[in-house]
Amino acid sequence: MNERASNGLVGWLLISLVLGYAGILLLAPLVMMILGAFKDGLQPILDDLTTPDALSALGLSIRLALLAALTNGVLGFLAAWVLARHNFTGKRIFNALVDMPFVISPVIIGYVMIVLFGRVGWLKDFPIKLAFSVEAMFVVTVFVSLPFVIRELQPVLATLMPEHEEAAYTLGASRWMTFRRVIFPSLRHALTVGVMLTLARALGEFGAAAVIGGAVEGSTETATIFINRALLDRNPSAAYAMSLLLGVIAIILLIAMNRIRHAGGRHVHPN
């Protein structure tokens, strides 16, 4: 136990403030969501979630999220690797640009995509239809969830000791075997957490997907767009049910990520 000053008056004030905002901003909506969804028991939730529109929206959301997570898992890994191991002109700019999806509104991204690829856009003759299509929604979903894998991997890559690789080389291991057996195992946890964050962010994407996809029921409507439409249509029970499902998935991901982060700290080298 390290010695810490006992909580004085200021300490208690700070703790109340933190717990207060956590309660209002993080817990209250969760409780509201659960209460609202279960207002009439479990059956209405199941009914609301098994309508053709709901199933289609859910299916699209899951497909997009999985594809985006896979894409960003691979491309993010490559980007983080290149940023950590190679020097090239524009590296710093590229590294700064990685955070762009965090700071720019997804709606703007959707709009820019329409301007570029829409019927009168600059790149309207692009071979893949990238406006008002599922492909376009995939592209914007990848965009909005791009930073997570890179930003999770970067700090771990920076702390890898070159001696580990050199030790493997002197023991006769090829570069590929060294990567597979020595480097990758150290990155696995960070990569998994990054992919899970990507998945969570992609499942929750709304603005860019709504703008670029056109929000057509049964076609380009995702789970979040479904919630929005249910609210506009004064169908709160459907909105609650879908929110609950997305919320549960998010909480499962959150718990899983915490467990992985905890496990990842176990074999950190004392040096």
Binding site: H164, A167, A168, V182, H269, N271
Partner: peptide, 20 residues
């Protein structure tokens, strides 16, 4: 030759044991 082909045993100051 590359380190792989030299057949030397190397002990590093920080040991560089594979942590996992």
């Amino acid at each position: 030759l590359t380190p792989q082909k030299r057949g030397t045993g190397f002990v590093f100051q920080n040991y560089a044991l594979f942590p996992h």
